[in-house]
Design a protein around this nucleic acid. Structure first.
Length: 393
RNA sequence: GUGGCUGUGGUGUAACGGCAGCACUAGGGCCUGUGGAGCCUUCAGAGCGGGUUCGAGUCCCGUCAGCCACC
């Protein structure tokens, strides 16, 4: 049902071009999943997603579960029917919410410390809504209800959701957690990985095991060995990913050589332009990231000549990018026109602008990944990286 | 022409006579397995001239402008 074939291997780096056979088609890698937390990309309907050229989406087990969507998905016959997305779908296990709803709020950091610098007010209270034990995690939902999620429950939910690629339930730690704590969390992650594998029975879903261990070399390497030994169809490399980007790359250099060549590797939650090149260069095949869609809603435009705040393009009387085939660029909507819509007092017009930017950014990242795949095939990945490094640092 | 009302950042608005605050706009920044169509940050203000007062955006007089009503 699943098979990962490596087509081309880069001679200078660990980059490779691959094909991952799934029940919903062949996924050529490297690839990036766009995040559709509750089964849909925010602001887009299924038709728009289809026409955007999106190939891979990741949905979120925690949010589907908390918002009582799972039964509805089952009734629809699975997440593909429910979402209307015909491509390949992954589901996150809920392990990230252990961090995003817990330590991230207490520590005020991202998976890489510098990601959330300074004092950010997220608009919701800072009390810890998470209680972690060796058995699983208690989440306090927005309505105050307490929910319990563990490996067994996560896999059961993910089987009901029915994505093509699913993940083991893990504990995503904070970069500010001590080594002692990270080691304890890692032990839980490994236990939960074993349980996840035992529970998982659906043959039409590929279960990926998640490697954790923070930014500690021995823990990361130990985790890679443990997860490899349990045996999965692919690997997820999860946060925390250290204090700087350099730490993140070091983690990849420690872990990737310890896992099999012929299995796909997914760097969880990462997907900035520079990160894609750096990850692929170190042997990563899959990414997922909220950046393209979230930043679109916040007015950021990605182009092959750099990343721009729409505000800076307000006088530009041309499309966002000439070569782009997204809905906005195809309709010859200029940056200036999009800016007017984006700043409109009319809420509907603002949403329309955000929708256009979302489609544009999805198109950009899809196209970028295509170019990367071609470059690997044509043996000039390093050259392509150099080209983009002019506009993206 | 007479009477009345109103004059506070670019805009819209607050503040018993006591540090001129807020929202929008504009500028700068952020966002990495989405609790976010979100967050942080900077610039920018009393129509003009007098007076009372320790102290005036606030009270008084004049002036100018705008709005309303009436000849």
């Amino acid at each position: 049902m699943f098979e990962f074939k490596i087509k081309v291997t880069d001679k200078k780096t660990r980059a490779r071009l691959g094909e991952f056979l799934t029940p919903h088609g062949i996924l050529t890698t490297p690839s990036l999943a766009f995040v559709g937390t509750q089964g849909n990309i925010k602001l887009l309907n299924a038709n728009e997603v289809y026409r955007s050229g999106m190939e891979l989406m990741i949905v979120n087990t925690y949010h589907l579960w908390v918002n009582n969507k799972v039964a509805e998905i089952q009734r629809a016959g699975g997440i593909h029917n429910y979402s209307g997305f015909k491509g390949i779908i992954m589901s996150d296990s809920g392990g990230y919410q252990v961090f995003s709803l817990g330590f991230r709020q207490l520590h005020k950091v991202g998976k890489i410390t510098k990601m959330f610098p300074g004092k950010i007010n997220y608009g919701f209270d800072k009390e810890n809504v998470i209680k972690i034990s060796d058995e699983g995690v208690f989440f306090k939902a927005l309505d105050g209800k307490e929910l319990f999620l563990d490996a067994k429950k996560s896999i059961e939910l993910q089987e009901k959701i029915g994505a093509d690629i699913i993940f083991t339930f893990d504990e995503c730690t904070s970069p500010l957690n001590s080594k002692k704590y990270t080691r304890e969390a890692l032990k839980r992650t490994h236990t939960w990985a074993e349980i996840s594998k035992q529970i998982h029975s659906k043959k039409n879903q590929a279960l990926f095991g998640i490697i954790q261990g923070g930014s500690y070399k021995d823990l990361r390497q130990y985790s890679a060995k443990v997860i490899k030994k349990i045996g999965f169809l692919g690997y997820g490399i999860g946060g925390s990913l250290g204090k700087t980007k350099r730490d993140m790359l070091a983690i990849l250099d420690w872990v990737v050589p310890l896992i099999e060549e012929d299995k796909p590797r997914h760097l969880l939650g990462i997907g900035g332009v520079v990160d894609l090149f750096n990850g692929i260069e170190r042997g990563i095949d899959l990414f997922d990231c909220v950046i393209p869609t979230r930043e679109a809603r916040h007015g950021v435009v990605y182009t092959h000549y750099g990343r721009y705040d729409l505000r800076k393009l307000k006088t530009k009387k041309q499309v966002l990018e000439k070569s782009c085939l997204c809905l906005a660029c195809r309709q010859h909507l200029t940056a200036a026109q999009l800016y007017v819509l984006y700043k409109s007092a009319d809420f509907g017009e603002k949403i329309l602008a955000q929708k256009y930017l979302t489609l544009h950014n999805i198109y950009f990242f899809s196209e970028l990944l295509k170019r990367i795949r071609s470059a690997i095939a044509e043996k000039n990945f390093t050259k392509l990286k150099k080209i983009y490094s002019v506009y993206y640092q």
